[in-house]
Amino acid sequence: MSDIADRVKKIVIEHLGVDAEKVTDNASFIDDLGADSLDTVELVMAFEEEFGVEIPDDAAETILTVGDAVKFLEKNAG
């Protein structure tokens, strides 16, 4: 697993208070990890802070799973 994936996973575990084994690539923040719409906004903010990137709203709307976040950040994080 890449360094970025590890860091994404850690943020998700901290913010959503879920067990590590649930945070798989395919896990949906809302359907599988118990997040609501405000939680997902906060998650995106936490990714921005951790990786020093700006995630525009239209991109944020496509980040629905842990894998989506990892993919986006692998492509865009410096």
Partner: peptide, 8 residues
Amino acid sequence: GPRRISPF
């Protein structure tokens, strides 16, 4: 800045 204000 404003982008760091939590939705909560």
